[in-house]
């Protein structure tokens, strides 16, 4: 078994774990976004979606999956970051510069993925407290400003219509998109995937998916604030 531990604690192994868990989290976000978009429906679609989600098996799968993927993703990445920081040595460069000719956004995204992720940690903590841990009280109408039991839609809108919460969720959503802009394609690199025909598709597709996820989630607080 020691070979297994050695493999997954090596730099490449840690990156592999970070990549697998990262893509798992992306998959979760896609489902999360599709569900949340029911908010825009004028009917009770959002409330029905929330009710069936929380009374089904899917929520247990998501909870357990996230409880495994999140700590593993963060742990591996922070552990790598510590090694990476040490590798530069005590004396850093006086002047920072680049020789890259890729577009500036791609370069900046690749260098700020870690820092964006660390900020996201706070956002996720607040978000989980807000809408997951207090789900029961929101669902029975004692928290969050819902009109009555089961009226999660009104509760979400009431929360997001407060400017500070709305702004926080908008910023958190944009940051998620920025984090994934580099993260999705980098995950594939961590698996050692390279192909002259498919790699450009992964890079462009990853960027597009990150943009959809980022703007998709941002659209909700913005919509509520502008309503």
């Amino acid at each position: 078994m020691s070979w297994l531990v050695k493999t997954f604690t090596s730099h490449t192994g840690r990156k592999l774990l970070a990549g697998i868990t990262g893509l798992g989290l992306v998959l979760f976000l896609v489902m999360h976004l599709i569900g949340n978009l029911q908010l825009f429906s004028s009917s009770s679609a959002f409330n029905e979606y929330a009710h069936s989600l929380h009374s089904g098996f899917l929520i247990v799968l998501a909870d357990v999956g996230l409880l495994i993927a999140f700590p593993l993703h963060i742990g591996m990445v922070v552990w790598l970051a510590i090694d990476n920081k040490k590798a530069r040595g005590a004396q850093g460069y006086k002047v920072a510069n680049t020789k890259q000719k890729r577009n500036l956004a791609a370069v900046l995204a690749s260098k700020s993925t870690l820092y964006g992720g660390l900020v996201l940690l706070f956002f996720v903590a607040i978000h989980v407290w807000h809408f997951r841990l207090q789900h029961e009280s929101i669902a029975n109408g004692t928290f969050g400003g819902g009109v009555g039991p089961g009226d999660l839609k009104s509760a979400v809108i009431a929360t997001l219509s407060k400017p500070h919460w709305g702004a926080l969720y908008a910023i958190g959503s944009l940051l998620t998109g920025w984090h994934l802009f580099h993260g999705i394609q980098a995950a594939f690199r961590s698996f050692g995937a390279y192909h002259p025909r498919y790699t450009p598709i992964i890079v462009k597709g990853g960027g597009a998916l990150a943009t959809i996820i980022g703007l998709g989630f941002t659209s909700m607080p913005i919509w509520v604030l502008l309503r």
């Binding site: 090694d83 990476n84 870690l114």
Partner: peptide, 18 residues
């Protein structure tokens, strides 16, 4: 490479440009 104290790859692609 790891034992020598080099860092891991973050895929910033600075190496190729340099």
């Amino acid at each position: 490479m790891e034992a020598q104290g080099f860092g891991a790859c973050s895929w910033t692609q600075e190496c190729e440009a340099a």
